[in-house]
Design a binder for these strands. Structure first.
Lengths: 111, 111
DNA sequence: CTTACATATGAATATATATTCATATGTTGA
DNA sequence: TCAACATATGAATATATATTCATATGTAAG
């Protein structure tokens, strides 16, 4: 599903650019990007994220706080644990497009 | 146009994640994102970018070097000037998807 | 060859931020 | 209430990096 043009989001607006940059910056850390990728598959608890990525629960929690604040992920408590998952499908699209960019064959000229 | 799945780019690969994160990190700086946005419209010279964004040519050049190395932009010399433009359309898609994410209405629950 | 212009580069620095560690908060069951 | 577990938070720190300034490289015209 392709994103529809959005009248309310002005790409030439100062605020919008900063808002977009904030999101890209969040995805720009490998550890955080791995966390995002894991959460895209299915809701997963903080402890399980930490275990699967061999990170400290504390570090994972710090990153999750940022991702939740930016509305990339959302957390849902189930008993003692809190399961994190993607808030919507756009981030997945963003990543897919970037994968396509990385997969683009190099042209003859090079740099 | 939606990106096609790419067999050669493995999302679970360590290298791929770092490669993706590098690109997102580049787009995560507001100044650099503005430079990218300007270059998406049409090829534009370093000096003109600097003028339109009221930045020093030196700073713009530093950013352009990174963006060119990451194959986000490409530079083409025309006389004394060098015109920069998007290397392919994927970055535009990435940004469009992120705009859609930003434009997503908040749910009732909030945080 | 010089001069003027356009862009690039390197060093220095101030700021941002990822990670760690210690501790706190919240939840469940005994 | 207490103990055990899960997650969150705050401070401290090491590292990364955006920006500036000075200088270098490259190009076209006289």
């Amino acid at each position: 599903m392709k994103a529809q043009p959005n009248q309310l989001v002005r790409l030439d607006s100062e605020d919008t650019v900063v808002q977009l940059a904030d999101l890209f910056r969040l995805m720009g850390d490998p550890t955080r990007l791995r966390i995002i990728l894991i959460c895209l598959t299915e809701p997963i608890s903080v402890g399980d994220i930490a275990e699967r990525l061999t990170l400290s629960p504390s570090l994972v929690s710090h990153h999750l706080r940022l991702l939740k604040a930016a509305r990339v992920l959302r957390g849902e408590r189930r008993g003692k644990q809190i399961f994190y998952s993607a808030l919507d499908d756009h981030i997945r699209c963003v990543i897919d497009d970037m994968v396509a960019h990385v997969g683009e064959p190099l042209d003859i000229e090079g740099d």
